[in-house]
């Protein structure tokens, strides 16, 4: 990569976003506590009561809790690098302004990536706090010291989804196409990544899900929360790292073609 990164500029991009969000920080973070509560009470306690067998009642709360935490990180990162990034790149001409400074495209990409990761981490950790609250109330959602590794893993999940969003953003010209990204990509992931049921109940479910990022995110979060850490979790972490690395090599080049003409 030509001329590498300038850490001060990467930080400046992060700080610009933080300056905007600082004003509404408290307001922004509150919904992140309600959302997990709604899912855990509505689906975990509500639906879980009808289930029979090993996922009955409180066990269903423990089953879906960690996966929903992974989805929260996914959502936190996705919004930043889809709609928000598109607006900054086009309508508000913010990237044009950045590129009038010593900033190069890769600094902007990395600054936005770190910011989106920060938001994913905030969403994910808010969810984790709610899960720990359920633990205090007697549910067995987070039961292992491995949970200490959750924040970095939430950041990794955030980074991976931030890069997928950036990649999509670098390819599209009209903002309406994000409707497809959300309904045809993120929503199916949310439903078919093993958060609510084992994907193996569909033919090739496991194999198909293995190729998608949220499946690995869920597997990691569930394993770390409940102490079932093994080769699967290692593979999932490497999967997320690998995909992130590949995208990080592609995205700055794509955006440079778009912004520097």
């Amino acid at each position: 990569m030509r001329a590498g990164f300038d850490p001060a500029i990467v930080w400046a991009v992060w700080m610009r976003n933080f300056t905007v969000y600082r004003r509404t920080w408290v307001m922004n973070i509150l919904p992140n506590f309600f959302e997990p509560l709604l899912y855990l009470v509505g689906l975990g306690l509500g639906l879980g009561a009808y289930l029979e067998g090993p996922l009955h009642g409180p066990a269903y709360v423990a089953f879906i809790g960690p996966g929903l935490m992974a989805a929260a990180a996914m959502n936190g990162a996705s919004f930043e690098t889809t709609y928000n990034m598109f607006v900054r790149m086009t309508f508000s001409r913010l990237y044009e302004a950045y590129l009038g400074t010593p900033a190069l495209v890769q600094d902007v990409v990395l600054g936005e990536l770190l910011w989106a990761t920060t938001r994913a981490l905030a969403y994910g950790c808010a969810f984790l706090l709610v899960l720990l609250g359920f633990d205090l109330a007697g549910y067995r959602v987070v039961t292992s010291w491995w949970a200490l590794a959750l924040p970095p893993v939430l950041a990794l999940i955030g980074a991976c989804f931030a890069l997928i969003g950036q990649c999509f953003t670098s390819l599209i010209r009209v903002i309406d196409l994000y409707a497809y990204y959300y309904t045809l990509f993120l929503t199916p992931l949310f439903l078919f990544s093993g958060i609510f049921f084992h994907v193996s109940r569909f033919p090739f479910g496991e194999q198909i899900a293995w190729c998608t990022p949220l499946y690995h995110s869920v597997r990691l979060c569930r394993g770390l929360s409940q102490g079932a850490v093994g080769l699967e979790q290692l593979v999932s972490a490497l999967w997320l790292l690998g995909v992130s690395a590949v995208l990080f090599a592609i995205v700055p080049r794509r955006l440079r073609e778009r912004l520097v003409r």
Binding site: A8, I9, W11, A12, M15, R16, T19, V20, S92, R93, L94, E96, A97, Y98, G100, T101, P102, A103
Partner: peptide, 29 residues
């Protein structure tokens, strides 16, 4: 780019920031 200053043709001020913030945020660059 470190040694020149740029005023592009199109307005690219940061609408979400105040006048002062616009300068302070860009000073970090």
């Amino acid at each position: 780019k470190r040694r020149i200053g740029v005023v592009p043709q199109e307005d690219s001020l940061d609408q979400e920031l105040t006048v002062r913030e616009n300068l302070e945020v860009f000073a970090r660059f």
